[in-house]
Simulated assay, not measured.
Amino acid sequence: MDVKEVLDIAMLSGEILLTNGSETYRVEETIERICSAYDIESECFVVPTGIFLSGCSKNDTKDSISLVKRIKERTINLHKIEMINSFSRSLKDRRISYDEAMKFLKGLDSAPSFPYYKSLLAAGVTSFAYAMLFGSSAINGIVAAFISILIYYAEDKITVINLLPFFSEFIWSFITGILAVFINKYILPINIDSVIIGSIIVLFPGIAITNGIRDALYGDILSSQVRLAEALYTVTAIGAGVGISLLLMKYWM
């Protein structure tokens, strides 16, 4: 396998990791592991929005290639991260051909994952637990679970609309506040504060904060600052959405 093919495999693996919520150091480590498995000397630099990779054959240092990949969209899928981790480690024991490797990597988009109903159930259980954690009753937890499942489902189905960064979090937190006040006013009395806290927890950027701290611990200061800033903007958007919804409902109702 030539240098270009190895770098293509490594770059696609890194892209999958980065777009699915992996830490920066893990992406660099995986790329270097894949290149090393095929006797390619490589240097890579990864930030949350891009991957810079160069490599050359250990036998012919003049045969050098550099690749750059811009990352425009990021989501969270720990299942794909785990599969890429297993894939990169398996190459140490068994090298596979270029076609076989690319077939596996490109097939991850259609790889079976958790059933969608389990994701909805997890969102509901998480919101119920957080509502109860803040001293709420079971009925408030159930309402929070209902709202979070509704928000999670709507957010997932409307991802085809390319909203501005952080604007989607603002919209969904705004709708959460409206729903909580509406239910309290016209359906049954609830603790609005605990219901809103439980409902918006599915929007909270927990992975971004965790990865930002872990990147800092590994010395990737630039990536750490980017991820923590992204988390801060997301939290600000969520807070603004809830605050504006409560302010509007105060005067309309």
Rank of each mutant, 00 (worst) to 15 (best):
D220S: 02
G212Q: 05
P189K: 15
L246Y: 09
M249K: 09
P165Q: 01
L163I: 12
E169F: 07
G135W: 12
Y218H: 14
A231Q: 01
S194H: 09
L228V: 00
I149M: 15
T210Y: 08
V160D: 11
A237H: 02
T236S: 12
Y186P: 09
V160S: 12
R227C: 04
D215C: 07
D220R: 01
S199C: 02
V143H: 05
N162M: 09
Y186W: 13
D193W: 06
S199K: 03
F167V: 14
L248Y: 12
L150S: 14
D156I: 11
A229T: 10
E230T: 00
S148G: 08
T234L: 03
S199Y: 00
I151R: 07
A145K: 01
I213Q: 04
D156Y: 14
S223K: 00
D220E: 06
I151Y: 06
I221N: 04
N184W: 12
G239S: 03
I178A: 03
I190F: 09
A237P: 14
N191K: 04
S148W: 05
D193H: 11
I244G: 01
E155V: 12
A208W: 06
V195I: 04
F146K: 10
I213G: 05
I221L: 10
Y233R: 04
F170V: 04
I142N: 11
L163H: 10
A180E: 14
A154G: 11
R214M: 05
I238C: 02
